[in-house]
Design a protein around this nucleic acid. Structure first.
Lengths: 201, 201
DNA sequence: GTCTATAAGTAGATAGAC
DNA sequence: GTCTATCTACTTATAGAC
């Protein structure tokens, strides 16, 4: 692994943990095992380093959509596969989504610099929308307004990972631990509900 | 309005916009129309000022649960009323939830100082859980694991408000504007889905 | 209670030796 | 490429006059 990658990896960890404003170049340097000056040698400024990390984070959020969405399996299977993959990815990177949403909330202009990152998501919307409308016309799927449906499905998949820091301590009071078993069970329920939600009867 | 309240109000705005690490005492002072020294006169430190604001934010998140949950209407009606109120409150304070979730993610120990704030939420879980199990036993409600169901319902209600900064620019590309009409429609769909989700047939 | 002025510490960034 | 040392700017916090 090159020094540049080591730094980027360390930066990812620190930015994810503390956000842009909370992150310290010194901490990144310490974790990377290099001097602070090296950070400015490879990335001229904190802002630039952050942009690389943020861009990577956004791209990680866009899972391997194409393989799923472009396949010619039935739409309901595609949707289940999509939700499952999305959920699993957030399991692997629990802080990623909160990080991206928050940096966008604090600094909405940032989205402009990363519009390219959302192309795959646009494709997802287009493909899904097209096929969904066909299924509705055929009477196979229930009818909802498209964009509202997208929000609802994403919410099913992603809300848990956003609310985890809030939920964990207080579900703990009810004797519930947010471990892998809980999450696997949650995903099972989500998939059941997704089917109820979409399929006509 | 006292000077103290003016400061707290200004602080709320700045902390919501920029988070703890991004907030500047100078900006709070400017918006409150007082000198920076006044902030330290009323609240000894930035941390203490933040704690007051954060505590208020958490309490705002807990809507008037009691009136709804303690009433003796049918459970399905209670749930709809609860979801509706929750959704409307986030409409009124769009940054609140993202703010709370993110500060907890950046600084999980903070939850310890604000455990008292989640008492009403615990009550909600207990009451809802008790009644839900009865309805399941009667065959009126579908059966899901309780905590997973709570996460799913909260996700239906709250995900939109968390993802808004991400969704807005790119749903815009599809010609969709996230205005009140969109949100009212979204809430309608959520209530329909909630009913499908809970009621047996 | 409210202000001005300033202290004390820390951050990101750079110069320059090796 | 990598380091040490340092600069400059900014931020929280305080001292003290009014």
């Amino acid at each position: 692994m090159t020094t540049e990658d080591t730094i980027k990896h360390a930066a990812m960890g620190v930015f994810l943990k503390s956000g842009f404003n909370g992150a310290r170049m010194q901490e990144i340097a310490d974790i990377a095992g290099v001097n602070k000056a090296m950070l400015h040698y490879y990335f001229s400024s904190k802002e630039q380093l952050f942009d690389k990390v943020f861009s990577d984070a956004m791209l990680t959020l866009i899972p391997e959509l194409d393989a799923i969405i472009s396949s010619d399996r039935p739409l309901i299977e595609k949707m289940k596969a999509f939700v499952t993959l999305n959920f699993r990815q957030h399991q692997k990177h629990p802080q990623l989504l909160q990080f991206v949403f928050n940096e966008l909330a604090n600094n909405p202009e940032r989205m402009q610099s990363h519009v390219k990152c959302i192309d795959p998501f646009n494709k997802y919307i287009s493909y899904f929308g097209e096929q969904y409308l066909k299924e509705v016309a055929s009477g196979n799927f229930k009818e909802y307004p498209l964009m509202q449906l997208v929000v609802i499905i994403q919410g099913l998949t992603e809300y848990y990972h956003l609310s985890r820091p809030f939920l964990a301590p207080f579900l703990g009071q009810h004797g519930v631990i947010l471990d892998k078993a809980f999450e696997d069970n949650l995903l099972d329920q989500i998939l059941i509900i997704l089917e109820q939600l979409l399929l006509n009867k």
